[in-house]
């Protein structure tokens, strides 16, 4: 209704200039009907729970593969989830906690601290990239940063295995190599995903906090030693 009024007004406005009032208004008006609301035959309500869980797990696994082989695809950005980051974060925190839990002293990085470092660190990086003018959404960035901890978690597992063998110079060298490699991998993978959404002249400014974030995590992993 208001549209026709608007058109009328526009037409009368035009008629003041040159066009006659009785020009017929023609055209097709296509209104999207409510069929958009309905999923076309695809319903997840009556499928077994196992399928649902497996599908979600497969999605998470797919994203792990994306992180391990970071080619420039937007799958990690398009359908973000926070399950993978939560899983990785909890695993890492538990592994770092493990050595100190059974001893009396409250030493070593605590579960909560690792947890807080990871989440608050990613939130700060995300806010920083937003402030620098990035076009990525908040949770997309959290998702990418969380998934890119995967190499570091793998490095942590390797470190635990190496530490079982003994802690000498050789073991430290092996751990240093593994952690450095995985730190580089994490930084590279996350920047491959994140940098595209940034203004081209400011990539270095966005990469620096990411570098610092993974550096601190990698350094915590490297200096971890299970207490006897």
């Amino acid at each position: 209704m208001s549209d026709t009024e608007l058109t009328d007004r526009q037409l009368t406005g035009l008629s003041d200039i040159s066009i006659a009032e009785d020009i017929p208004v023609e055209g097709d008006i296509a209104v999207p009907v409510g069929s958009l609301r309905r999923d076309d035959g695809f319903s997840t309500l009556d499928e077994p729970v196992k399928e649902t869980i497996l599908r979600d797990l497969r999605a998470v696994g797919n994203k792990f593969v994306h992180v391990l082989y970071p080619k420039r695809s937007s799958a990690l950005l398009r359908d973000w989830d926070l399950w993978g980051p939560l899983l990785l974060c909890v695993t890492l925190a538990l592994l770092l906690q493990g050595g100190a839990a059974d001893s009396d002293e409250q030493g070593g990085p605590q579960f909560a601290e690792v947890f807080v470092i990871i989440w608050f660190g990613s939130i700060i990086i995300t806010l920083n990239s937003k402030l620098l003018g990035g076009t990525i959404s908040f949770f997309q960035s959290l998702c990418v940063l969380g998934y890119c901890i995967l190499p570091l978690t793998v490095a942590m597992v390797v470190c635990r295995i190496v530490l079982v063998g003994g802690s000498g110079t050789v073991s430290f060298a092996v751990r240093l190599a593994v952690v450095t490699a995985s730190f580089g991998w994490s930084t590279f993978a996350s920047t491959a995903f994140l940098v595209d959404s940034q203004p081209p002249n400011r990539k270095a400014l966005v990469v620096y906090p990411v570098f610092l974030f993974y550096f601190v995590i990698g350094w915590i992993i490297l200096t971890f030693s299970p207490s006897q």
């Binding site: 030493g107 990085p109 601290e113 601190v216 350094w219 915590i220 200096t223």
Partner: peptide, 24 residues
């Protein structure tokens, strides 16, 4: 960023100066 870097450096210093425990 400099303040965050300083935080990281301080952490490193504290760890290497023998105060390995009490990380948090």
């Amino acid at each position: 960023m400099l303040v965050f870097t300083l935080v990281a450096i301080l952490l490193h210093g504290m760890k290497t100066s023998g105060t390995v425990i009490r990380e948090g």
